[in-house]
């Protein structure tokens, strides 16, 4: 599956390269933009479960994006765009939980149960993303775009700290294990090995060509696949990556 996918990606990328010799007219009308941006968002269940009582902090992460895309106008307004981006969809958030299912794992040991207390959740997802979008230009400066995307994760981490509360082992009648506030007394977890390597989703956004070659762009990327393997049951809710991107683009061609 993975191999097939990579092959497709390579074919796709090759096809994207400007190829003057083969189709001069097509190449002439292609527009090419380089982008750098920043992703803001999180990985969250659609409909936050009642076991999450509050979101207490949301810290900035190095969620940078850099990429290039090609747009082929099909009419005066409509076009298709495709690109390749290297980006990080990270998250660093604090939440307060009540009876939230989790598992503390370390080597051969594990404690699984329901945690009530504070959770600091860190997610890192460096990935190669390939968007395929339909574009609609209102005028020379402003255009909208929407379409599906696929991401291949290159480096990912899903870990956290549970502190200042207690874990009921197994179910609410199990042993109540107090988890402290300080390092050494708190508990850590790491589900990085349970993360999916390929994600799909849809995105929509707008480009505004503010200057002759430089413009700004805003996009929303809505993940349709969870970030963890679906057969991994410890985290009961499917966590979807939902991120917004603000970027600056430079029109190369």
């Amino acid at each position: 599956m993975k191999k097939t996918f990579l092959t497709l990606v390579i074919i796709y990328m090759t096809a994207m390269l400007p190829c003057n010799s083969k189709a001069g007219n097509l190449s002439d009308s292609l527009q090419m933009r380089a982008r750098v941006g920043y992703n803001v968002g999180g990985t969250a269940p659609i409909g936050i479960p009642a076991t999450i009582r509050s979101i207490d902090a949301f810290r900035l992460t190095p969620s940078f994006m850099a990429g290039v895309d090609l747009m082929l106008p099909l009419s005066s307004r409509w076009g298709v765009a495709a690109g390749v981006r290297f980006e990080n969809k990270a998250m660093d958030a604090d939440v307060t939980t009540k009876g939230y299912r989790m598992e503390l794992v370390k080597g051969d040991s594990k404690i699984e149960g329901l945690f009530t207390g504070h959770v600091q959740q860190e997610v890192t997802q460096w990935m190669l993303t390939i968007p395929l979008e339909a574009t609609f230009a209102f005028n020379r400066k402003f255009s909208l775009k929407a379409g599906p995307y696929v991401s291949i994760l290159t480096n990912s981490k899903f870990s956290g700290i549970a502190s200042g509360g207690y874990l009921r082992q197994g179910d609410p009648t199990g042993a109540k294990i107090i988890i402290g506030e300080k390092e050494g007394e708190w508990a850590t977890y790491d589900f990085s090995d349970e993360m999916r390597h390929v994600q799909y989703g849809v995105s929509a956004g707008a480009d505004w060509q503010a200057f002759r070659q430089i413009g700004i762009s805003a996009e929303l990327h809505w993940g349709l696949t969870g970030i963890l393997h679906s057969d991994f049951k410890t985290v009961e809710q499917t966590l979807y990556p939902i991120y917004g991107t603000i970027s600056i683009f430079y029109r190369i061609k």
């Binding site: 803001v40 968002g41 409909g47 936050i48 009642a50 509050s54 979101i55 009876g99 009648t173 939902i242």
Partner: peptide
């Protein structure tokens, strides 16, 4: 877009009923 975390925060559900039953 910066409002996204706030949007999420506004989705907090009512507190579930207690599940623990200790003396």
């Amino acid at each position: 877009m910066l409002a996204l975390p706030l949007m999420l925060a506004s989705c907090i559900k009512d507190e579930p009923l207690g599940t623990e039953c200790d003396i």
